[in-house]
Design a protein around this nucleic acid. Sequence first.
RNA 1: GGGGAAGUGGCGGAAUGGCAGACGCAGCCGCCUCAAAAGCGGCCGAGGCAACUCAUGUGGGUUCGACUCCCACCUUCCCUACCA
Length: 825
Amino acid sequence: MAESYDFRAVERKWQDRWEREGLYRAREDASREKYYVLEMLPYPSGDLHVGHAKNYALGDAIARTMRMLGYNVVHPMGWDAFGLPAENAAIARGIDPATWTAENIRNMQRQVRLMGTSYDWSREVATCEPEYYRWNQWLFLRLYEKGLAYKREAPVNWCPRDRTVLANEQVIDGRCWRCDSLVERRNLSQWFLKITDYADRLLADLERLDGWPERTKTMQRNWIGRSEGAQLRWQIEGSDASFETFTTRIDTLYGATFVVLAPEHPAVDAIKTIVSKKNAAAIDAFALSLKSKSELERTSLMEKEGIFTGAYAINPLSHEHVPVWIANYVLADYGTGAVQGVPAHDERDFEFAKKHALPIAKVIVPKGGDPAEPLEAPYTGEGRLIASADFSGMASERARGAIVERLHAMGLGRKAVNLRLRDWLVSRQRYWGTPIPIVYCERCGEVPLTDEALPVLLPPGVHFTGEGSPLAQLASFVETSCPRCGGAARRETDTMDTFFESSWYYLRYLDAHGESAPWRRERSDYWMNVDQYIGGAEHAVLHLLYSRFFYKVFADSGWVSGSDEPFERLFHQGMVLYNGEKMSKSRGNVIGIDETAATNGVDAMRLFLLYVTPPEDTSDWTDEGISGRVRFVNRVWRACEPFFERAGAVPIRELPPLETADEKALVRALHVALKSTIDEATTRRFHFNTTVAKFDELVNAMTAAAANMPHSLATLYAAHALPVAIAPFAPHIAEELWERFGHATSVHLERYIAPDERALAVDEITLVVQVNGKIRARIPALPGISEEDAAAMALQHDHVRAHVEGKAIRKRIYVQDKLLNVVVS
RNA sequence: GGGGAAGUGGCGGAAUGGCAGACGCAGCCGCCUCAAAAGCGGCCGAGGCAACUCAUGUGGGUUCGACUCCCACCUUCCCUACCA
């Protein structure tokens, strides 16, 4: 009696053996073409669910296919191990963050192995290990030397719950990206990385990233937010003080009827000294009312609130005196923190002017019709200028150039480029991160540590109260000596944003245990770039922008050669729902790796995740759906089982004799599946859902063959070839079948079987015959049939004749072996 | 407000200019069985006895031919937003 397939024992057996034999270890080999496939490094949060599994099933299928196609594949894995959850666990439950993190890593690593993934574990890194973060510190010092890391006081985002500052990229809708608290603005002295120096290149080089999704590139473009315009200086009437405005529409300057400053603008202090006590008090009250408001409340207020300061500013060209306002909608840290108000030509200015009864009808760029008519709505388009002194008559475009030129000659303005992108705030007032390698000396001030002093280790024995920066409270850490003068000094107690670590980890994988440098050039020269990067779209402006920035710095420094972009091709996988709902611990509907591996098996899980949708789409995990793949795995076993003793002798690198139609169809189904695997992997479409469907058809054919032609060489051939064909998707059953067929070496060391044109060819085609584009007949024919023969056959067909007879044939369209269209009238 | 993606059977989806609905799930029928499960085989968009007709969100267009390309609209999802 046949034994049934015991997936638990088989999966266990092969995972252990692969591990023992180091089957997936990658080594540099200049004679072979390399392929670097990488999935975004995970945060060790505790447990893997099928959402993670989808990502790894996809990456692993790609890695295994490319390996079997002969590429030297590197497929590493590691842990983004610093970060707040570990520290919050420490506060809540008194567990050492290092212990908590190590336990999670151990568990998740076990689960990743349980998936039967082909990672090279000799390259594993955890970013919280000193051997990793010392290079973080090393890189920080290099950035510091280049002037790309600097400390300055600035208004920053402060999360009151997490008690730390956040980068702009980590504030979502005015809320903390981790805990959802409303973010406050605080003036603090903080460390920044000068990503704005690279804004132009980060923007321009997006054009070259052909292998990136368009939407991701668009998001980066919008995030960088480069706009070209002009900056000009306004003198405040009755004061020495002045301020600058930025505008993209300098052509409408003659239409300015007011100007607006941000309440925090430095010029507001000067204004308070020249206006009445009453006005000054009102300014203070208005500023205070905003200060107590969160960023979200302030920016999502659709009402434009503002007050007149009592002061006037002088339009540098028209010399008109216009009132100076302060308002909530002008942001201190965008542009110059001051704007010109041109109600006739700007939606927002129009709305503000209407609300506060400011003059509106100052049309500079008429839309057409009578410019004297009262304005219903602002005209924001371009046109020919009026009422603009000697610029009148010019088109908007030309006027912008001419006006900037005039202002420049007067020393009051210039062309300017404004960015939305801010420098990257990288310091955090938390413990579980890389200490910043800087000390503060009473005599020398801010002093970087020397390379020999690295790593600055995170001290153990810290007391977590949730109050204040933990490192700052530890005197033994803080008190040190100055590397320059030897005098007393205090250490920087901030740690780095964890995005610092993840901006270069893909390089550390290539030299994971190197002790002389973060990575050696000869390693990166061989392996970089990442050929295929796979991860969620939520990192579009965080990790993916920071990594590009770092890599450009590395390229400029000569630490890597070739391209200055790290990720050749990028793929965003979709998320996984359960019965149409988002999985979450609170809902209690999380499908964990452990439970599904135990009940369904890992091969079935991997197949299902690839099969249910194209990988970029959202997939829905259902119990019925997974049971379909469990059935499939069992059918694969049953289709091969009768041939364990016999199939191993039939060669799989040459076609068997194909005598009957069934034999041809069976072998063809195999080669169609082989071709699909290779096509999806190498065209980088990764729609393995269609590939798995081809395997369904193959196994259907094999099931019939096992019953109807158990002695055919074609049947034995297909059975013997199946484990090789399916190895990238169901690695365990593939390996077990391969062994049962009598092989002593791993199926995963086999070359993939090349699809054979003779096997793919068909003996008979169905010729579709259309008359005027409507299908009138389907005629069986021989492949390669000529147009003349096809037409002759078609016209013999009753249905075709009925539609053609008595009409003139105007045209014939013939698609070889597919279709004939007869056009009549 | 701006940007992006997508709309195909009961469901997930396939077809990217040439036979719409591959493959799976669910459902129905049969075989096997004392019976059930499993397994195996068959049916499975709508209308029609049928030959056939209709059908890929809506309306137009391009084409011999459109799920596929173009334009407009509707709907859904995602991202982003007082950006000067």
